[in-house]
Design a binder for these strands. Structure first.
Length: 257
DNA sequence: ATGGTTGTACGACAA
């Protein structure tokens, strides 16, 4: 099975790219973030016509997550337990024999800001939730835009990013707490030596210079085996791209189990 | 590298 995550930064603008991606890559499941799309305007018809089921949690202008799957999507949970959050950043669901948790972790703006405190509280609630979820589900995938670059090798310029937002010790320690629960960073496991990025700033021609960072992740429980991964840089190179590339991970076996 | 771009929605905020 092939599982992808993609922060599309407006599903309305990026729907043609998404439909091209589905046709070209034929993933079994895609987790989307930053759909910026209220539920009543979600492009259900177009995505279902491509042969996929949909589940979504959107809001006007900001945030918004969705799941797109060839296999029906069941038992959706739209709110991260343990925190009251009107922002649509979380969508957990059961797909075949998989439990999938799609995340759009708060950006945090700047270390020490009010939004940074929200990010830390959100991550702490996530860690508590996933500790329970791993007890309930042996085949668990946690994926999305984490807004955390786990290590120095995950930025194009460690000195520039050191201690800043997405790279601070408190954010990185939360990421490693997630791994310590029993989750695997599939991309780092598959490509231990590679500089792989998933996000490049729109500004300063950052993509052409490969000034990127790795903040989108696919984590899995130890019952699952990741076989291969790919960052879809060609989608970041399109006209009017998202600032994130899609990340696809190939797992052994099928969604049905 | 300390500026700059994009999306939403039409000014200002979020990223």
């Amino acid at each position: 099975m092939r599982i992808a995550t993609w922060n599309v930064n407006s599903l309305n603008v990026r729907l043609p790219h998404l439909l091209d991606f589905l046709a070209a890559e034929a993933p079994d499941m895609v987790a989307l973030q930053e759909t910026k799309c209220p539920d009543e305007r979600f492009p259900r018809v177009e995505i279902e016509a491509a042969g996929y089921h949909v589940a979504f949690a959107g809001q006007k202008a900001y945030n918004g997550v969705a799941l797109i799957s060839r296999t029906p999507i069941n038992a959706c949970l739209f709110d991260l337990p343990g925190i009251v959050d009107p922002q649509r950043r979380f969508l957990a669901a059961t797909i075949g024999e998989l439990r999938v948790v799609n995340l759009y972790v708060p950006n945090g703006e700047a270390v020490g800001s009010e939004k940074f405190g929200y990010k830390m509280a959100w991550l702490d609630a996530l860690i508590a939730f996933l500790r329970d979820e791993l007890v309930r589900h042996r085949r668990l995938i946690v994926l999305g835009d984490f807004n955390i670059a786990p290590g120095e090798e995950d930025t194009h310029d460690p000195k520039r990013w050191e201690g800043g937002i997405m790279c601070s010790p408190s954010e990185r320690s939360r990421f490693f707490e997630l791994l310590d629960l029993g989750l695997i960073d599939t991309v780092r496991e598959l490509r231990p030596e590679s500089a792989l990025y998933t996000w490049w700033d729109y500004r300063l021609n950052a993509f052409a210079r490969n000034w990127g960072i790795r903040i989108d992740h696919v984590l899995c429980s130890t019952d699952l085996q990741a076989e291969d991964c790919e960052v879809g840089k060609k989608w970041r190179a399109q006209e009017r791209p998202s600032d994130h590339a899609p990340l696809t991970v190939q797992f052994a076996g099928e969604i049905a189990g």
